[in-house]
Design a binder for these strands. Structure first.
Length: 732
DNA sequence: TGTACACGTGTCTTCGTCAG
DNA sequence: CTGACGAAGACACGTGTACA
């Protein structure tokens, strides 16, 4: 089974810093739609295993990725792209995603000639050449590569591991961060290094013994074995440039390619075109016979400009592969689609600013407007969509009419109404003699209010932004000092918490292994934790014996306690994955915490078993992202996410709201899956509600489970599953 | 020959205005 | 009051070119 990622998880989207931490409803819908059959959603558990943890891969267990009910990552970029586009229900881009069989695409083709083999790219790196069945040094082979085992985020670390002929040190496709910081070594925007994909490279890179140091790996990974090919780190593509005497010092750009191999072949074809089949053998990357049936551009004897033009037109013929969710594009310069209506937008860079030139019914109309403005700016040197001869009679008139105009004047001359700002403040505009402050959230006006003065409105706008978009507000607000104290306090706490969680700035949690190795994670008896389980706290029978309703939840150890609070937002979780509502206690029906915690003389001492972590301790699971949810705020994307993911019986709690309140959380007990190498356990400050309600001192551990799938929460190459376990104090 | 940077274009998102 | 529409901003990406 292959997992098709929703469009939101295209490499482009992943690399879009603007959306790094945002989770959109559309993403959810897309994810649900495209992943519905992929069995990757968290499933209710039936044996005291917390829902969401049907997978308990042992550290280093590569089979986890494909064989344990965990779907494989997308293996074929082409199908992935096609699926992504189709899955949105958006109009199809005019590009054909059916790549031509011949490896001649500017946007990457199947270099291996395999119809079924996945394309390698900087996003999806192939597994180690040492992996069974992986045959990466046969450019002309028809079989293609076996499925690359990983999606890019983790694949990057694999890429680091996989150079040379010595295989992967971890041996079985397990990801290991050569930088020593686990995944934290990969910046959120730092894309993986290109994998060395060929045996040739392996031979070149490896020393006489075939071994090489990690340093050498990282140094060499950007270099291509092929002539004319280099890797562009920023674009994460293989770039091809060809330089021959006839082209002058600079040579010409042939294009960008996803795979090193296809780039090398593009170079070869350009060389054949430039030098002829008889004279180019010496500089080709592959035997010329491999191109016997290829059509190559005829470039012999052409000037540099002609060569550039020919290569450009060759590129234009090829299907373009877009990484973003683009609906359609224009073949004309300066013309783009208007997504919200069936019109074409013309724009031009006018005095250094992109300037809107209006909407037009046809591409051609828009293209001609662009041409005219371009001519007015640059005269006969203008870059135009149609032959400039067609405008020869207008050049002088256009220049006379349009040149020298300001941006706004140009727009008015074209019948476009420039945007006039009525206020100098952001988010403020004049309306019916008053000043309106507006804030948009999720494309809707989340806040709108009228004020008598402009400044009042600007201040109100700031306040609203701080409330509605606290994390982004800083870059929006009109006044520096406008952050309300409580919001500032919340942000400080969040920042502190983030630091305390030892989460790398990229958003990726640190791996647990160093913590475990460093002896920082103990069980109650001071035994270092390697493999542990947390036993359930109170079962249905426990509850029954205490006088509460015997929870008949399918979740087994899941119990709930509820009181006056409302930890679960309206419409929220109530044993979503449980028994459909019958088994979970309703609000006020039972207060397990009260029964167990307040009335018990002390902690519920658990049934300690060898190697187990704190048997009998109460434990809760929480999703930190949800904790900031407030009644007067819209459900956070994370909350919606959680709903969709069916975090059965989990606690949606707001710790801050627990202080001084009665207990209102659902309590969940569960078995902790064994910690894997990529898991992390981080000690937390005891939370107020725990300290006050547990009846004994607690320390809190949050365990991040690393599942090697695309993360919906943070859009990085892992999925975080967060456990917070409230435990009796240990070492401290 | 390889690498890095600058710049222009295409697309998506946000913001301001206006009309129902 | 609300949503639609248009303009501008933001960002990703492709290309040209300078330079080591």
């Amino acid at each position: 089974m292959s997992l098709q990622l929703p469009p939101a998880f295209t490499p482009s989207a992943l690399n879009n810093s603007h959306h790094d931490r945002m989770f959109k409803q559309e993403d959810m819908a897309a994810a649900a739609g495209s992943m519905g059959s992929a069995h990757w959603m968290l499933q209710p558990s039936s044996n005291n295993v917390l829902p969401g943890f049907p997978y308990q891969p042992a550290a280093g267990d590569s089979s986890f990725h494909e064989g344990n009910g965990v779907p494989s990552p997308p293996l074929n970029m082409a199908s992935y792209q096609a699926h992504s586009t189709a899955g949105q229900g958006a109009p199809q881009a005019p590009y054909s995603l059916d790549l031509p069989p011949a490896p001649s695409s500017h946007y990457d083709t199947q270099p291996n000639g395999g119809a079924t083999g996945p394309r390698t790219s900087p996003f999806i790196v192939p597994s180690s050449p040492s992996l069974p069945g992986y045959n990466c040094n046969s450019p002309g082979s028809s079989g293609g590569n076996p499925p690359a085992p990983q999606y890019f985020g983790l694949g990057s670390t694999l890429a680091n591991n996989s150079t040379g002929g010595n295989g992967v040190a971890s041996g079985s496709g397990t990801y290991r961060d050569v930088k020593g910081g686990g995944l934290c070594g990969l910046g959120a925007h730092e894309m993986p290094l290109p994998a060395i994909t060929t045996g040739r490279q392996a031979n070149l890179d490896a020393g006489p013994s075939g071994a090489e140091s990690p340093v050498a790996e990282t140094q060499q990974v950007f270099r291509s074995q092929y002539r004319g090919v280099s890797y562009d780190k920023k674009k994460r593509k293989w770039r091809v440039q060809i330089k021959v005497a006839a082209l002058g010092k600079s040579g010409v750009s042939v294009g960008y390619f996803d795979t090193e191999d296809s780039a090398a072949r593009a170079y070869d074809r350009a060389a054949i075109g430039l030098l002829g089949r008889q004279n180019c053998r010496a500089i080709l990357n592959f035997p010329i016979e491999e191109y016997d049936h290829d059509s190559v551009p005829e470039l012999v004897g052409k000037t540099r400009e002609e060569v550039k033009a020919t290569l450009k037109s060759e590129r234009a013929k090829l299907p373009r592969r877009r990484l973003t969710n683009r609906r359609r594009t224009s073949k004309y310069l300066g013309v783009g689609s208007s997504n919200r209506k069936n019109q074409w937008q013309a724009r031009i860079l006018y005095h250094g600013k992109v300037t809107h030139l209006g909407y037009y019914r046809t591409e051609e109309e828009a293209a001609r407007v662009y041409d005219k403005v371009s001519i007015s700016l640059h005269g006969e040197n203008a870059q135009t969509n149609f032959p400039i001869d067609q405008y020869s009679s207008e050049v002088v008139a256009l220049q006379a009419k349009l040149s020298g105009l300001t941006r706004e004047e140009l727009q008015r001359a074209l019948g476009v109404k420039p945007m006039d700002k009525s206020s100098k403040y952001r988010g403020v505009s004049k309306k019916k003699g008053k000043w309106e402050a507006k804030v948009v959230v999720n494309r809707k006006w989340a806040y709108r209010e009228l004020f008598d003065t402009e400044v009042e409105a600007a201040r109100a706008y700031d306040r609203a932004v701080w409330r509605l978009k606290p994390k982004e507000a800083k870059s929006y607000v009109n006044f520096k000092d406008s952050c309300p104290p409580d919001v500032a306090d919340m942000l400080r706490k969040a920042e502190k918490e983030e630091r305390g969680l030892a989460v790398h700035p990229t958003g990726l949690p640190l791996t647990a292994k160093p913590l475990i190795d460093a002896g920082l994670l103990f069980d109650e008896e001071g035994v270092s934790i390697k493999s542990n389980t947390m036993q359930k706290v109170f079962s249905a029978s426990d509850l029954a014996s205490l006088g509460g309703p015997a929870g008949s939840s399918d979740l087994g150890g899941v119990t709930s306690a509820s009181g006056s609070g409302d930890a679960v937002p309206s419409g929220g979780q109530e044993a979503a994955g449980g028994d459909g509502g019958g088994g979970m206690p309703r609000r006020g029906s039972y207060n397990a915490l009260s029964a167990l915690g307040d009335t018990a003389a002390g902690p519920i001492r658990g049934r300690m078993t060898g190697g187990s972590l704190h048997g009998g301790m109460r434990s809760v699971q929480s999703v930190p992202h949800l904790q900031s949810y407030g009644r007067d705020e819209p459900p956070s994307p994370m909350y919606q996410h959680a709903q969709q993911r069916q975090y059965s019986g989990q606690i949606l709690q707001r710790p801050s709201s627990f202080a001084g309140q009665r207990h209102s959380e659902q309590r969940v007990s569960f078995d902790l899956p064994p910690l894997g190498e990529q898991d992390v356990a981080v000690k937390q400050e005891p939370q107020a509600w725990q300290a006050s309600n547990m009846g004994y001192p607690v320390s809190t551990w949050t365990v991040y489970k690393h599942l090697c799938l695309q993360c919906l929460w943070c859009k990085v190459g892992v999925r975080h599953t967060v456990w917070t376990a409230a435990l009796p104090c240990m070492a401290d």
